[in-house]
Computed example of a mutant assay.
Amino acid sequence: MDGHDDWIDTGFTPAAGVQFQQSSAMLGIWARKADRNAVAPVGTVTGTSVSLNPRGATDANAGRLNGSAVTSGGSVASGYGFTAIDRSGAAVVRQFIGGVQKGENGNAPAAARSTARVGIGRANGVAADGQYCAFVAGGSLSAAQHGVLHDALQGYMDALGVMPLPVAVAKARSAAAWTSLPDGSAPIVAGRGMAVTGLTRDLAGRWYVGNGRTTRHPLLFSRMSPDLAAIEAEFDLTRLGLSVDMAGSCQGMTLDRSDGSLWIVVKLSGASGSDSHLLHFDPATDTMAAPPVLLSAGTNGVAWDPHADCLWMLRDSSELVACDRSGAILSASTPMPANSDQ
């Protein structure tokens, strides 16, 4: 699952379970993803009464089963392998990791079974990335039975050569070359070149430079020649036909190759000056392709994904989310390094 628009419908509905009952139930998943999940990758597609997260944002292995109470298996260093949650009574839920009980909640009142299907890679309307090799659901098992189930799955996975997914590692890159830019009409410091808070290129090879700053300003971005030597046009509120409320700070630009348009994030916008908006610009006509779209405050970067046909947006809270062209969020958040910007 890529974490934004594909997921597995297990076809299993807790309320329709035969062995899976309100006070006697079990659900488990074998995950290849060792890294953290910002949200539970397994659970009912709406609601949270059934959910399972092998490794959460704080390293907790936890879940819910026919109720609102969370049961934790404690902190883990990896989400890889088999995790199961088991309700053995009206108030008792246990958490198993690798076939061994690692946690128990004796104050977890059972609630009516959900009528929503269980999804893998999508829970409570939010997508999560990862790869999953086995899913089980049924009645409560004893500790010994959990061990037998795990060992059987382990032997099968070993025979297939199943391994953990590699964990993403951040890398630092150094600049190989640089180009001096002209001031334009509104440099922050004269003689130091225009502000650059976003950069993209249209299908004609012309560059677009976001002219953001720490305070609101009517100039949002400039278009440069293909060699970056000359300013071809500056785009302020008047030229774009935008209201004074859209004065802000351009914080990211990207080319949508499906139609040649540009997507632009403007921060410090709105009547209060604390909003973020998504602009859709048509380079062929030098006009706005649609009215501005209000985004979550603190959005400060955007990139078009040609494979998933979506927009990835960065936030001040150092997280990355996938969105559609209306700004609606499609995925769970992916943690980013501190102070990630544009």
Rank of each mutant, 00 (worst) to 15 (best):
A247D: 08
A168D: 06
I120C: 01
T58Q: 09
P218D: 10
R87F: 12
R36L: 06
R94I: 01
D324G: 11
S258D: 11
G191R: 11
R201T: 15
A123C: 12
G56R: 03
Q342E: 15
S318I: 03
D309K: 15
G298W: 12
W263K: 15
R113W: 01
L160G: 07
M26P: 00
T10Q: 04
G106Y: 00
G139Y: 03
Y208T: 12
L165V: 02
A186V: 02
I120K: 02
G103W: 06
D9I: 00
V76R: 15
A16C: 01
T44M: 05
P337Q: 13
G138T: 04
S296N: 08
L278N: 02
T299W: 06
R192S: 14
A127L: 04
L160K: 11
G17N: 06
G273A: 06
A112K: 07
E234D: 13
L160D: 01
R216E: 03
A127S: 12
L262T: 15
N105C: 07
A308P: 00
C323N: 13
L311Y: 13
G79P: 05
D6G: 08
D305T: 10
T200H: 12
L320W: 13
D129F: 04
A34G: 14
G43R: 12
S51L: 11
G103S: 09
A144M: 00
N300P: 04
A143F: 00
A40S: 15
D275M: 03
H280S: 10
P182N: 03
G138I: 04
G155Q: 14
G205A: 09
E234R: 14
D286E: 08
G47T: 05
N107E: 09
A289Y: 06
R216K: 11
V42R: 05
S78D: 09
G99Q: 03
E104T: 15
D86E: 15
L228Q: 12
M157H: 07
M336Q: 15
R223A: 14
K267A: 15
L242V: 13
D35M: 02
D259I: 12
K171Q: 09
L279Q: 09
P109N: 10
I188Q: 10
A303W: 03
K171L: 03
L330I: 10
M1F: 13
G205R: 10
V148T: 09
S326T: 15
G81F: 09
P306H: 07
H277W: 03
R257C: 06
